[in-house]
Computed example of a mutant assay.
Amino acid sequence: MTKIAVHMTGGIAVYKAVEVVRGLQKQGHEVRVAMTQNAARFVGPATLAALTKHPVLIDQWAATLNGQVPHIELADWSELSLVVPATANLLAKMAAGLADDAVSATLLATSAPKIVVPAMNVHMWNNPATQRNIAQLRQDNVMVMDPATGMLAEGYAGKGRMPEPAAIVKQVQDYLTNGPLKGKTLVVTAGGTREALDPVRYLGNRSSGKMGIAIAKAAANAGARVELIVGSVSVALPHSDRITVTQALSTSAMAAAVSDKFQTADALIMAAAVADFRPAVLADQKIKKHGDGTLTLHLVPTEDILAKMGAQKRSDQVVIGFAAETNDLLHNADAKLQKKNADAIVANDVSEPGIGFGTDDNAVTILRPNQAPLRWSRQSKMMIAEKIVALTANLLKVGD
Protein backbone atom coordinates (compact mmCIF):
# COMPACT_ATOMS: atom_id res chain seq x y z
CA MET A 1 0.00 0.00 0.00
CA THR A 2 1.30 3.44 -0.97
CA LYS A 3 0.19 6.83 0.35
CA ILE A 4 -0.84 8.69 -2.80
CA ALA A 5 -1.76 12.38 -2.93
CA VAL A 6 -3.96 13.08 -5.96
CA HIS A 7 -3.74 16.71 -7.07
CA MET A 8 -6.66 17.89 -9.22
CA THR A 9 -6.57 21.04 -11.32
CA GLY A 10 -9.21 23.02 -13.20
CA GLY A 11 -9.70 21.17 -16.47
CA ILE A 12 -12.98 19.72 -17.71
CA ALA A 13 -11.44 16.24 -17.50
CA VAL A 14 -11.25 16.52 -13.73
CA TYR A 15 -14.54 14.61 -13.40
CA LYS A 16 -12.65 11.50 -14.59
CA ALA A 17 -10.12 11.95 -11.78
CA VAL A 18 -12.78 10.75 -9.35
CA GLU A 19 -12.60 7.36 -11.07
CA VAL A 20 -8.82 7.44 -10.74
CA VAL A 21 -9.17 7.89 -6.99
CA ARG A 22 -11.51 4.92 -6.79
CA GLY A 23 -9.22 2.82 -8.98
CA LEU A 24 -6.23 3.53 -6.76
CA GLN A 25 -8.24 2.66 -3.67
CA LYS A 26 -9.25 -0.66 -5.22
CA GLN A 27 -5.54 -1.41 -5.66
CA GLY A 28 -5.15 -1.01 -1.90
CA HIS A 29 -3.57 2.45 -1.82
CA GLU A 30 -4.41 5.15 0.71
CA VAL A 31 -5.49 8.27 -1.17
CA ARG A 32 -5.86 11.90 -0.19
CA VAL A 33 -6.84 14.78 -2.46
CA ALA A 34 -5.80 18.38 -3.01
CA MET A 35 -7.71 20.59 -5.46
CA THR A 36 -7.29 24.01 -6.98
CA GLN A 37 -10.16 26.46 -6.63
CA ASN A 38 -10.91 25.98 -10.34
CA ALA A 39 -11.01 22.19 -9.98
CA ALA A 40 -13.62 22.61 -7.25
CA ARG A 41 -15.83 24.42 -9.81
CA PHE A 42 -16.10 21.17 -11.77
CA VAL A 43 -16.18 18.56 -8.98
CA GLY A 44 -17.43 19.16 -5.46
CA PRO A 45 -14.82 18.48 -2.76
CA ALA A 46 -17.48 16.77 -0.65
CA THR A 47 -17.47 13.90 -3.16
CA LEU A 48 -13.73 13.35 -2.74
CA ALA A 49 -13.86 13.77 1.03
CA ALA A 50 -16.53 11.07 1.23
CA LEU A 51 -14.50 8.69 -0.94
CA THR A 52 -11.16 9.21 0.80
CA LYS A 53 -12.40 9.75 4.38
CA HIS A 54 -10.07 12.76 4.53
CA PRO A 55 -10.77 16.47 4.12
CA VAL A 56 -9.83 17.83 0.71
CA LEU A 57 -7.06 20.42 0.73
CA ILE A 58 -8.13 23.52 -1.20
CA ASP A 59 -7.05 26.43 0.99
CA GLN A 60 -3.41 26.34 2.08
CA TRP A 61 -4.31 28.74 4.87
CA ALA A 62 -7.01 26.49 6.33
CA ALA A 63 -6.74 25.80 10.05
CA THR A 64 -5.99 22.28 11.23
CA LEU A 65 -6.84 20.56 14.50
CA ASN A 66 -3.22 19.84 15.39
CA GLY A 67 -1.83 23.18 14.24
CA GLN A 68 0.17 21.81 11.29
CA VAL A 69 0.58 23.75 8.06
CA PRO A 70 -1.89 21.92 5.76
CA HIS A 71 0.14 21.78 2.55
CA ILE A 72 3.34 20.80 4.41
CA GLU A 73 1.51 18.07 6.32
CA LEU A 74 0.17 16.60 3.04
CA ALA A 75 3.57 16.99 1.38
CA ASP A 76 5.27 15.05 4.18
CA TRP A 77 2.53 12.39 4.22
CA SER A 78 2.78 11.65 0.49
CA GLU A 79 4.78 8.72 -0.83
CA LEU A 80 3.65 9.46 -4.41
CA SER A 81 2.12 12.60 -5.92
CA LEU A 82 -0.24 12.21 -8.90
CA VAL A 83 -1.45 15.31 -10.75
CA VAL A 84 -4.60 14.51 -12.70
CA PRO A 85 -5.56 16.34 -14.79
CA ALA A 86 -2.50 18.57 -15.09
CA THR A 87 -3.44 21.79 -16.88
CA ALA A 88 -0.97 23.85 -18.89
CA ASN A 89 -1.04 26.42 -16.10
CA LEU A 90 -0.11 23.88 -13.42
CA LEU A 91 2.66 22.43 -15.59
CA ALA A 92 4.11 25.93 -15.97
CA LYS A 93 3.97 26.49 -12.20
CA MET A 94 5.73 23.20 -11.48
CA ALA A 95 8.44 23.88 -14.07
CA ALA A 96 9.08 27.35 -12.64
CA GLY A 97 8.83 26.30 -8.99
CA LEU A 98 5.86 28.53 -8.23
CA ALA A 99 3.69 27.91 -5.18
CA ASP A 100 0.70 30.26 -5.13
CA ASP A 101 -2.07 27.84 -4.19
CA ALA A 102 -2.56 24.68 -2.16
CA VAL A 103 -1.75 22.29 -5.02
CA SER A 104 1.38 24.00 -6.34
CA ALA A 105 2.66 24.67 -2.79
CA THR A 106 2.22 21.01 -1.81
CA LEU A 107 3.93 19.79 -4.97
CA LEU A 108 6.87 22.12 -4.39
CA ALA A 109 7.18 21.03 -0.74
CA THR A 110 7.00 17.28 -1.23
CA SER A 111 10.00 15.04 -1.85
CA ALA A 112 7.75 12.20 -3.05
CA PRO A 113 8.03 11.01 -6.67
CA LYS A 114 5.66 12.82 -9.02
CA ILE A 115 3.54 11.65 -11.95
CA VAL A 116 1.65 14.24 -14.01
CA VAL A 117 -1.16 13.52 -16.45
CA PRO A 118 -1.55 16.50 -18.80
CA ALA A 119 -4.97 17.26 -20.27
CA MET A 120 -5.66 20.33 -22.41
CA ASN A 121 -6.54 21.60 -25.86
CA VAL A 122 -4.27 20.34 -28.66
CA HIS A 123 -3.04 23.87 -29.42
CA MET A 124 -2.10 24.43 -25.78
CA TRP A 125 -0.30 21.08 -25.73
CA ASN A 126 1.67 21.87 -28.89
CA ASN A 127 2.59 25.39 -27.75
CA PRO A 128 6.40 25.70 -27.45
CA ALA A 129 6.04 27.06 -23.91
CA THR A 130 4.16 23.95 -22.80
CA GLN A 131 6.70 21.68 -24.46
CA ARG A 132 9.55 23.55 -22.76
CA ASN A 133 7.80 23.05 -19.42
CA ILE A 134 7.31 19.34 -20.12
CA ALA A 135 11.01 18.99 -20.97
CA GLN A 136 11.97 20.78 -17.74
CA LEU A 137 9.73 18.53 -15.64
CA ARG A 138 11.22 15.41 -17.18
CA GLN A 139 14.69 16.79 -16.48
CA ASP A 140 13.54 17.24 -12.87
CA ASN A 141 12.66 13.49 -12.75
CA VAL A 142 8.92 14.06 -12.95
CA MET A 143 7.16 11.29 -14.88
CA VAL A 144 4.93 12.80 -17.57
CA MET A 145 2.21 10.59 -19.02
CA ASP A 146 1.50 11.55 -22.62
CA PRO A 147 -2.07 12.72 -23.28
CA ALA A 148 -4.28 10.68 -25.58
CA THR A 149 -5.43 11.66 -29.06
CA GLY A 150 -9.20 11.84 -29.50
CA MET A 151 -12.27 14.01 -29.32
CA LEU A 152 -11.69 17.10 -27.19
CA ALA A 153 -14.23 19.14 -25.22
CA GLU A 154 -14.09 21.77 -27.98
CA GLY A 155 -15.75 19.36 -30.39
CA TYR A 156 -12.79 18.38 -32.60
CA ALA A 157 -10.11 15.72 -32.37
CA GLY A 158 -6.51 16.26 -31.36
CA LYS A 159 -3.80 15.35 -28.88
CA GLY A 160 -4.45 16.58 -25.37
CA ARG A 161 -7.27 14.36 -24.19
CA MET A 162 -6.78 12.87 -20.72
CA PRO A 163 -6.10 9.11 -20.80
CA GLU A 164 -8.83 6.89 -19.42
CA PRO A 165 -8.83 6.37 -15.64
CA ALA A 166 -7.95 2.68 -15.97
CA ALA A 167 -4.85 3.57 -18.02
CA ILE A 168 -3.77 6.11 -15.41
CA VAL A 169 -4.18 3.61 -12.58
CA LYS A 170 -2.16 1.07 -14.56
CA GLN A 171 0.57 3.65 -15.12
CA VAL A 172 0.77 4.25 -11.38
CA GLN A 173 0.86 0.52 -10.65
CA ASP A 174 3.58 -0.03 -13.24
CA TYR A 175 5.61 2.78 -11.73
CA LEU A 176 5.27 1.36 -8.23
CA THR A 177 6.04 -2.23 -9.21
CA ASN A 178 8.67 -1.77 -11.92
CA GLY A 179 11.13 0.59 -10.29
CA PRO A 180 14.87 0.40 -10.99
CA LEU A 181 15.36 -1.86 -7.95
CA LYS A 182 12.56 -4.28 -8.72
CA GLY A 183 13.62 -7.78 -7.69
CA LYS A 184 16.43 -6.47 -5.47
CA THR A 185 16.67 -6.73 -1.69
CA LEU A 186 18.31 -3.98 0.33
CA VAL A 187 19.31 -4.09 3.98
CA VAL A 188 19.11 -0.62 5.52
CA THR A 189 20.07 0.30 9.07
CA ALA A 190 18.72 3.36 10.87
CA GLY A 191 18.90 5.12 14.22
CA GLY A 192 21.46 4.79 16.98
CA THR A 193 22.56 1.81 19.01
CA ARG A 194 22.53 1.76 22.81
CA GLU A 195 25.13 0.11 25.02
CA ALA A 196 23.82 -0.62 28.51
CA LEU A 197 25.81 0.49 31.57
CA ASP A 198 23.36 -0.94 34.07
CA PRO A 199 19.62 -1.74 34.10
CA VAL A 200 18.84 2.02 33.98
CA ARG A 201 21.54 3.79 31.99
CA TYR A 202 23.12 3.39 28.58
CA LEU A 203 25.65 4.97 26.23
CA GLY A 204 23.91 6.36 23.16
CA ASN A 205 24.05 9.05 20.48
CA ARG A 206 21.86 11.74 18.91
CA SER A 207 20.75 9.82 15.81
CA SER A 208 17.00 10.17 15.14
CA GLY A 209 16.79 7.55 12.38
CA LYS A 210 15.39 10.04 9.84
CA MET A 211 18.09 9.43 7.22
CA GLY A 212 17.94 5.65 7.33
CA ILE A 213 14.15 5.56 7.31
CA ALA A 214 14.09 7.96 4.34
CA ILE A 215 16.45 5.61 2.48
CA ALA A 216 14.19 2.64 3.27
CA LYS A 217 11.17 4.51 1.88
CA ALA A 218 13.04 5.62 -1.23
CA ALA A 219 14.27 2.08 -1.87
CA ALA A 220 10.75 0.70 -1.51
CA ASN A 221 9.46 3.36 -3.91
CA ALA A 222 12.15 2.21 -6.36
CA GLY A 223 10.73 -1.32 -6.26
CA ALA A 224 13.09 -2.97 -3.80
CA ARG A 225 12.24 -5.26 -0.93
CA VAL A 226 13.73 -3.62 2.15
CA GLU A 227 14.98 -5.19 5.36
CA LEU A 228 15.03 -2.19 7.71
CA ILE A 229 17.01 -2.76 10.90
CA VAL A 230 16.45 -0.02 13.45
CA GLY A 231 18.14 0.89 16.69
CA SER A 232 16.84 3.74 18.81
CA VAL A 233 14.73 6.09 16.64
CA SER A 234 12.65 9.16 17.44
CA VAL A 235 10.51 9.19 14.28
CA ALA A 236 7.66 7.01 13.07
CA LEU A 237 8.56 3.74 11.39
CA PRO A 238 7.36 3.23 7.79
CA HIS A 239 4.38 1.05 6.95
CA SER A 240 4.81 -0.63 3.58
CA ASP A 241 4.32 -4.09 2.15
CA ARG A 242 7.88 -3.83 0.83
CA ILE A 243 9.53 -2.93 4.13
CA THR A 244 10.16 -5.41 6.95
CA VAL A 245 11.28 -3.82 10.22
CA THR A 246 13.59 -5.53 12.71
CA GLN A 247 14.55 -3.80 15.95
CA ALA A 248 18.11 -4.16 17.21
CA LEU A 249 18.95 -1.76 20.02
CA SER A 250 22.50 -2.83 20.83
CA THR A 251 25.45 -3.03 18.46
CA SER A 252 25.70 -6.80 18.95
CA ALA A 253 22.01 -7.22 18.14
CA MET A 254 22.35 -5.05 15.05
CA ALA A 255 25.45 -6.97 13.97
CA ALA A 256 23.58 -10.26 14.23
CA ALA A 257 20.57 -8.93 12.32
CA VAL A 258 22.70 -7.40 9.54
CA SER A 259 24.80 -10.56 9.21
CA ASP A 260 21.65 -12.64 8.86
CA LYS A 261 19.77 -10.38 6.42
CA PHE A 262 22.75 -9.50 4.22
CA GLN A 263 23.41 -13.11 3.25
CA THR A 264 20.52 -13.08 0.78
CA ALA A 265 20.48 -9.34 0.00
CA ASP A 266 21.88 -7.38 -2.92
CA ALA A 267 23.02 -4.31 -1.01
CA LEU A 268 23.61 -2.98 2.48
CA ILE A 269 23.26 0.71 3.37
CA MET A 270 24.59 1.31 6.89
CA ALA A 271 22.92 4.61 7.83
CA ALA A 272 22.70 3.75 11.55
CA ALA A 273 24.95 5.51 14.04
CA VAL A 274 26.56 2.45 15.61
CA ALA A 275 28.35 2.75 18.94
CA ASP A 276 32.11 2.27 18.68
CA PHE A 277 32.49 1.30 22.35
CA ARG A 278 30.62 -0.56 25.08
CA PRO A 279 31.31 -1.01 28.81
CA ALA A 280 33.71 -3.83 29.55
CA VAL A 281 31.42 -4.92 32.40
CA LEU A 282 27.64 -4.58 32.52
CA ALA A 283 26.46 -3.80 36.05
CA ASP A 284 23.54 -5.99 37.11
CA GLN A 285 22.24 -3.31 39.50
CA LYS A 286 21.89 0.46 39.15
CA ILE A 287 25.28 2.09 39.69
CA LYS A 288 25.28 4.24 42.85
CA LYS A 289 27.41 7.23 43.75
CA HIS A 290 30.31 6.40 46.07
CA GLY A 291 33.07 8.47 47.64
CA ASP A 292 33.58 11.71 45.69
CA GLY A 293 30.80 10.80 43.24
CA THR A 294 33.04 10.31 40.21
CA LEU A 295 32.74 7.26 37.98
CA THR A 296 35.39 5.69 35.78
CA LEU A 297 34.18 3.56 32.89
CA HIS A 298 36.32 0.95 31.19
CA LEU A 299 35.19 0.77 27.55
CA VAL A 300 36.04 -1.83 24.94
CA PRO A 301 35.44 -1.74 21.15
CA THR A 302 32.17 -3.01 19.74
CA GLU A 303 31.97 -5.22 16.67
CA ASP A 304 32.70 -3.31 13.44
CA ILE A 305 29.64 -4.22 11.38
CA LEU A 306 30.57 -2.26 8.27
CA ALA A 307 34.10 -3.69 8.12
CA LYS A 308 32.82 -7.24 8.63
CA MET A 309 30.23 -6.94 5.86
CA GLY A 310 32.75 -5.22 3.58
CA ALA A 311 35.14 -8.13 4.06
CA GLN A 312 32.44 -10.76 3.51
CA LYS A 313 30.50 -9.22 0.61
CA ARG A 314 30.32 -11.16 -2.63
CA SER A 315 31.25 -9.62 -5.96
CA ASP A 316 27.56 -9.12 -6.75
CA GLN A 317 26.82 -7.32 -3.48
CA VAL A 318 27.18 -3.62 -2.66
CA VAL A 319 28.05 -2.10 0.71
CA ILE A 320 27.54 1.61 1.43
CA GLY A 321 28.52 3.16 4.74
CA PHE A 322 28.07 6.52 6.44
CA ALA A 323 30.72 8.70 8.06
CA ALA A 324 29.37 11.27 10.52
CA GLU A 325 32.31 13.54 11.26
CA THR A 326 32.98 16.77 13.13
CA ASN A 327 36.39 17.54 11.59
CA ASP A 328 38.60 16.55 8.65
CA LEU A 329 35.54 15.23 6.82
CA LEU A 330 37.10 14.01 3.58
CA HIS A 331 40.28 12.67 5.18
CA ASN A 332 38.38 10.65 7.79
CA ALA A 333 35.74 9.45 5.33
CA ASP A 334 38.35 8.36 2.78
CA ALA A 335 40.20 6.41 5.45
CA LYS A 336 36.92 4.70 6.33
CA LEU A 337 36.27 3.89 2.66
CA GLN A 338 39.60 2.09 2.40
CA LYS A 339 39.53 0.39 5.78
CA LYS A 340 35.98 -0.94 5.52
CA ASN A 341 36.23 -2.19 1.91
CA ALA A 342 33.00 -0.30 1.14
CA ASP A 343 31.74 0.53 -2.34
CA ALA A 344 30.83 4.05 -1.21
CA ILE A 345 30.87 6.21 1.89
CA VAL A 346 28.28 8.93 2.53
CA ALA A 347 30.13 11.56 4.54
CA ASN A 348 28.48 14.42 6.40
CA ASP A 349 29.73 17.01 8.87
CA VAL A 350 27.33 16.74 11.81
CA SER A 351 28.83 19.82 13.46
CA GLU A 352 27.26 22.08 10.84
CA PRO A 353 24.03 23.72 12.07
CA GLY A 354 20.80 22.57 10.44
CA ILE A 355 22.07 19.27 9.06
CA GLY A 356 22.87 15.86 10.47
CA PHE A 357 21.42 14.33 13.61
CA GLY A 358 17.75 15.05 14.28
CA THR A 359 17.25 17.50 11.39
CA ASP A 360 15.14 17.26 8.24
CA ASP A 361 18.02 18.30 5.96
CA ASN A 362 21.44 16.97 5.13
CA ALA A 363 24.45 17.84 3.00
CA VAL A 364 26.78 15.00 2.07
CA THR A 365 29.84 14.08 0.05
CA ILE A 366 29.95 10.70 -1.68
CA LEU A 367 33.30 8.95 -1.77
CA ARG A 368 33.93 5.98 -4.05
CA PRO A 369 37.17 4.11 -4.84
CA ASN A 370 39.27 5.80 -7.53
CA GLN A 371 36.66 8.48 -8.26
CA ALA A 372 36.37 12.16 -7.50
CA PRO A 373 34.18 13.10 -4.52
CA LEU A 374 30.55 13.81 -5.37
CA ARG A 375 29.09 16.67 -3.33
CA TRP A 376 25.36 17.06 -2.71
CA SER A 377 24.51 20.43 -1.21
CA ARG A 378 21.97 20.95 1.56
CA GLN A 379 18.54 19.49 0.75
CA SER A 380 15.91 17.36 2.42
CA LYS A 381 16.92 13.95 3.70
CA MET A 382 14.29 12.40 1.44
CA MET A 383 15.95 13.94 -1.62
CA ILE A 384 19.35 12.74 -0.39
CA ALA A 385 17.81 9.30 0.16
CA GLU A 386 16.49 9.14 -3.40
CA LYS A 387 19.95 9.99 -4.73
CA ILE A 388 21.57 7.34 -2.53
CA VAL A 389 19.09 4.77 -3.84
CA ALA A 390 19.88 5.82 -7.43
CA LEU A 391 23.58 5.46 -6.61
CA THR A 392 22.91 1.98 -5.23
CA ALA A 393 21.10 0.98 -8.42
CA ASN A 394 24.05 2.25 -10.43
CA LEU A 395 26.55 0.31 -8.31
CA LEU A 396 24.43 -2.81 -8.74
CA LYS A 397 24.59 -2.20 -12.50
CA VAL A 398 20.80 -2.38 -12.76
CA GLY A 399 19.82 -2.50 -16.40
CA ASP A 400 23.23 -3.67 -17.64
Rank of each mutant, 00 (worst) to 15 (best):
A190H: 09
L48T: 09
A5R: 14
A88W: 06
E386P: 05
Q263N: 15
L249E: 09
D101G: 05
K261H: 12
M382N: 15
A390N: 08
K340C: 00
V83N: 11
A49L: 05
V69D: 04
N178K: 12
V21N: 12
E30V: 10
K3S: 14
L237N: 13
T149C: 05
L181W: 00
Y156I: 13
N38I: 14
D100N: 07
S207L: 01
L65M: 14
D316E: 12
M120D: 10
N66M: 12
A102C: 07
A335S: 13
D400W: 14
H331T: 15
K339T: 11
R225P: 09
A311K: 15
L297H: 14
I345K: 10
G212M: 01
A307G: 09
N370R: 14
M35V: 03
T2P: 03
A112D: 03
G358K: 12
S315K: 15
P85D: 04
V117P: 03
P55C: 01
V230W: 02
L186K: 06
V226W: 05
R242W: 13
H54M: 00
M382S: 13
D266V: 03
N121K: 13
D198I: 09
A253Y: 00
L237R: 14
G293V: 01
P369E: 12
H29I: 05
T9A: 10
I4A: 04
A333C: 08
G44S: 13
A272F: 02
L176S: 04
Y15F: 14
G209P: 04
K289T: 00
N126W: 02
D284C: 12
H29C: 04
V172K: 13
D260P: 00
P113E: 10
E30I: 08
A167M: 12
P70R: 07
V84F: 11
Q379G: 10
V6Y: 09
I72K: 10
V56F: 02
I388R: 13
S208A: 05
V364K: 06
T149R: 11
K53C: 14
Q25V: 03
G10Q: 11
R225I: 11
H239K: 15
I134W: 02
Q68S: 14
V20F: 02
